[in-house]
Design a protein around this nucleic acid. Structure first.
Lengths: 253, 253
DNA sequence: TAGTGGTCTAGACCACCGT
DNA sequence: CGGTGGTCTAGACCACTAA
């Protein structure tokens, strides 16, 4: 790279007064990830190699990789290398599902059933959340998650139609792992982070029937917006959780 | 300090195979915080000074402080110094209260009313969560939080009696800031982190009355265990939130 | 044993803050 | 201006993994 000295950067002067070198390196690595230069699950080049490529010291690369690892874009494995994060792994499996059995242990046998999958014009709120122009089509998915045969989660999912061409109930049914793994492998869309808004709601008749609870039962509702690279929203999800013997874990730091 | 070289550490050999130097430094700084060597809101010595005191390089101190800052025990302020975190500040004010108005903006005028404050023998579940022996006394507090005159949060709080001698309704009423600020200043108990379990429940008659909702209304319930240094539990809290126009924010990363 | 990430050092310089 | 944290470097050595 050229012109990455702090002073030079400062001279550029716009919104962020100063962008340190390691952040620029971070940006370059992110660009490589986004462009698919290294695929999920694969290792990226070693720190010394990246340092040579970018013409900076290893310490600077290290700090860039540190941040990317903290954001779960990369995974460090001592003695082996640094790998591109993937949703096809035990460890990342439940990163976005915060529901846990009250008795502690990991969730037991989980079964996913697709109830619906069709295309429709995006409702205004969905379009707004996804940054779509009015009238664009979205893929709508409704699915039911059961733990040990007990229906527990009803998810309604909206995805930008343009990014998920060819997504169908059959395709979903044929897949085994987590949805985000499918999205990553089949559509090249990598879910990076999400924000949820939680509230307690009363189950309406339709939802109550699907979840096997009495109408009016209290349900935990999670409205999620999921983002890919560049903080681009690519999924809206409304989940309803039966919290009789499960709870949603939240860590306050 | 003496004997902090990696090799020496490795030779000690027990559970953690190897404890890097910066973690030991981190432990020493934490001990200072816990012992009250530096008070909340005050600056700790500069990095160079700490490096000299501990006989390590500045970079090693830096990494220790980095972690402590990431855990919100310290706050770095460029050009000024590194300060001991405190609950008496705007920025940390809402660190543990994740409820937000649906319309985005920050919570409006908040009013806290103490409904109850008394001592009682710890119920078994509370005693277990707080690591108390059966029959020890706890302080029980019930309080109501209202936003813009609208009752929104009902908190039941249990604290170890031994740590909070002299805590009374009057004392609570006389205080202005957040509870954790009071606990920090008056009782020397600093809340560091917490874990919550969320579920949807139906309001019973008593709770419904206090919150001004219909009995059976769905409420978001948060069961919190709060920890101080050394991961010692020092508070159990059960909150019930009215989520008609508020939601609980959760970030998935 | 070779290669990777992880730690530690010493020193330089920069950005930011208060005086 | 002096002092603080923030960045960057170059080089050494350690811990871990796989072949």
């Amino acid at each position: 790279m050229t012109d990455h000295r702090p002073g030079v950067e400062a001279a550029r002067a716009d919104t962020p007064r100063f962008s340190p070198l390691y952040r620029q390196i971070k940006g370059l690595i992110t660009r490589g990830l986004q462009a698919g230069e290294w695929k999920p699950g694969e290792p990226i080049p070693s720190e010394t190699e990246l340092a040579a490529r970018f013409g900076v010291s290893q310490g600077t690369v290290r700090k860039a990789v540190d941040e990317l690892a903290a954001e779960n874009l990369l995974v460090r494995r001592q003695g082996r290398g640094t790998f591109v994060a993937t949703h096809h792994e035990e460890r990342t499996q439940f990163r976005f599902l915060r529901l846990r059995p009250d008795d502690g242990g990991p969730p037991g046998r989980m079964e996913s059933r697709i109830l619906e999958c069709r295309r429709l014009r995006a409702p205004v709120e969905i379009a707004r959340a996804l940054g779509l122009r009015g009238g664009e089509t979205v893929v709508f998915i409704r699915r039911l998650l059961s733990f040990e045969q007990r229906p527990t989660v009803l998810d309604d999912i909206w995805l930008p139609g343009a990014l998920f061409r060819g997504l169908s109930a059959e395709r979903l049914g044929a897949s085994v792992g987590p949805l985000y793994g499918l999205f990553e492998s089949e559509f090249g869309v990598r879910m990076i982070r999400a924000a949820e808004q939680l509230r307690a709601v009363a189950a309406d008749r339709e939802v109550a029937t699907l979840l096997g609870v009495a109408p009016g039962s209290p349900l935990l509702q999670a409205e999620r917006v999921t983002y890919t690279y560049q903080d681009r929203p690519v999924e809206v999800r409304r989940g309803r959780y039966v919290t009789d013997s499960f709870h949603y874990r939240s860590a306050l730091g």
